[in-house]
Nucleic acid binder design. Sequence first.
DNA 1: CCTATTGCGGATAAAAACTATCCACAATAA
DNA 2: TTATTGTGGATAGTTTTTATCCGCAATAGG
Lengths: 176, 176
Amino acid sequence: MKLGEGVEAAIHCAATLASVDGNSTMPGAALAESFGLSPSYLLKHLNMLTAARILESVPGPAGGYRLAKPAERITLLDIVLAVEGREPAFRCGEIRRNGPVKIDASAYVKPCGINAAMLRAERAYRAALAETRLSDIVAEYAEEGDPRSFAASCAFVARHQRPQKSSSNPRNPKQT
Amino acid sequence: MKLGEGVEAAIHCAATLASVDGNSTMPGAALAESFGLSPSYLLKHLNMLTAARILESVPGPAGGYRLAKPAERITLLDIVLAVEGREPAFRCGEIRRNGPVKIDASAYVKPCGINAAMLRAERAYRAALAETRLSDIVAEYAEEGDPRSFAASCAFVARHQRPQKSSSNPRNPKQT
DNA sequence: CCTATTGCGGATAAAAACTATCCACAATAA
DNA sequence: TTATTGTGGATAGTTTTTATCCGCAATAGG
């Protein structure tokens, strides 16, 4: 059982985007630089987040990414499912049917108990992920993280975020 | 996030071995046949279970595998960890340190909040897996499974299990 | 209008993991 | 002694993951 590295990247990027001002955006290249990641590959993951309506993207110069909704309404589960896919980690191959003795299919209408137990565990996993919101991550970082790295992150965001002329879905319509 | 197919095979095999009599064994080839699996590859997984002291193996003719301890003391977590390894699914690459601005390592003594949240979820997953014992799986199958497939499984076990002369760790020392 | 920047999607490929097979070997029951 | 079984290593095919590149569409700014 293994999660791709894209999950870590996606969560860090989303957390970073949570601190851009209003409807400003941040280019994917800046996010990649911020974490020392391959830009072209990171874009694939950011794209998954965009497709899942977790991020919004703006093309063109001064374009980039921003959160599609408040950080309070984005959970780690949202991000993990967007990047890793929605299928459960345990996929029942119904090998119980593959024995040498063939039995009528009606004997297997009840779901496999092993599959049920594995899926139950995965529900617990997802429930735990759903309990942590992106805003929790950001708040914990701001309050308990090291002041130096926090300041550096803020400076980086301030340096790379770009204000937008207008937005179809302004999270913070106006700000001085 | 994906589990290998070996997990499904391992759990099914362990459940099957839970119904062999006393200290009898069942050859790996029979287990593979029982689920339509590749024998040589299944042996790898059974080997992991043996290394983890979940199964015991007996070489030689009339040899095979049996549970190393009562099914009540084997959980799904034991099996999953034995087959998939004990490392967490989320591995923090500490990409928070990889930004363009280098900060002293002392800024990162506190564990990454993202990593902590992901590991918390995985603890929930493992806790749920640890709640299901192999005996639960077997009991549920015996009580609620289809009688036809249950009978076929019992017949298959009865046909392939092999009594042992003696055992260094007899689970059921004597039986007529 | 033109140019430069940015995200998007597809094609491609390198690397890693997973799946599968085979063989020589040790153990051992008959 | 022979046949059967598990063990461990070597090997290879397949799939998944990671990574790169290029052409395309969108668009801000001149």
